[in-house]
Amino acid sequence: MNQNQTLKNKVREAIRFEPFLEEVRIKVTVEEGVITLSGTVDSYVKKSIIEQVVNSVSGVHPVIEKIKVEYEFDVMKTDETLTSEILELLKLSPNLPESSINFSVINACVTLSGNVKNLAQKEEVERVISSILGVRIINNNIIILPES
């Protein structure tokens, strides 16, 4: 078995053995060591878990992620509604400096910017926003600026 096939099998097995991803069917292709993931999931949380699982597989380096989020039922929220929900959740998150976090919402795709003190805060912002039903994509461009 060649290296590409071995890597593909390792990635597929990692996804298959993640309990939260039981119902997920993701296509995995490997070409010259580059992994491409494609398919559809029903939540942003599942998409994030797939990314984490795949990146934890030994030998995985570059990953091209083409997974789409499509909810099982029709969750069409306006960008204004999503913006309000994001603002409310950020206010309720005591560990996040809401004044230094900026975002925009366009067609249910959230782009984050601003700065935080550490990686934990950056990941927490994304985790909080990924819990909102209706968010399809999160681009986390937040910069980590440790205190001097």
Rank of each mutant, 00 (worst) to 15 (best):
V30D: 03
N115K: 09
K27Y: 04
S113K: 05
N4H: 15
E65Q: 07
K8G: 01
V75T: 14
V11K: 02
V11C: 03
E65Y: 08
N2I: 12
A14M: 01
L133I: 07
V110P: 04
V24N: 06
I50K: 02
I86V: 06
D42P: 03
S99H: 09
K68W: 03
V11E: 00
N2M: 06
G33M: 08
A108Q: 12
G134V: 09
E32A: 14
E23K: 12
S100G: 01
T40Y: 09
E124Y: 10
S43I: 14
N139V: 14
S100I: 06
T29H: 10
I15V: 08
L7W: 02
I142Y: 01
I67R: 05
V69A: 12
V128R: 09
D79T: 10
K10S: 15
E23P: 00
T6K: 13
I143Y: 07
S131F: 04
L7C: 10
V53G: 00
I64Q: 11
I49R: 08
T111C: 09
G39R: 01
S48G: 12
N4C: 07
K27R: 15
L145Q: 12
S104Y: 12
F103K: 05
N95A: 11
K47F: 01
T81H: 06
E18C: 15
Q121S: 12
V116W: 03
I64S: 10
E31K: 12
E123P: 00
T111S: 11
V110T: 10
N9Y: 06
P19F: 08
S93D: 13
K27I: 12
V54S: 01
K27L: 09
T111W: 01
S58Q: 06
I129T: 01
V53C: 05
K91M: 13
L133T: 10
Q52R: 14
I15T: 08
T36E: 08
L133W: 11
S130M: 09
L90Q: 02
E85N: 13
M76V: 15
D74P: 05
S104H: 06
D42E: 11
V57I: 13
K47L: 08
N118I: 07
S104G: 13
E98P: 01
G114H: 07
E18M: 13
K122Q: 06
S93T: 15
I144L: 11
V30T: 03
V34E: 12
I26K: 00
F103C: 03
R127N: 13
T29N: 14
E31T: 10
V24S: 12
H61C: 04
E13S: 14
N141S: 02
L82A: 07
G39V: 06
V116H: 02
V75K: 15
L90V: 05
N55D: 06
P62R: 13
L96G: 04
S100R: 05
C109P: 06
I50P: 02
V28E: 04
M1Y: 07
N95G: 10
K66S: 09
I101K: 00
V45L: 14
I26Y: 05
S48L: 13
V105G: 00
S48T: 11
S43L: 11
S58M: 09
V45H: 04
E124W: 04
V30N: 05
V125Q: 05
N95D: 14
L89R: 15
I49C: 04
E147A: 10
L96H: 03
E124S: 12
L82T: 09
L7E: 10
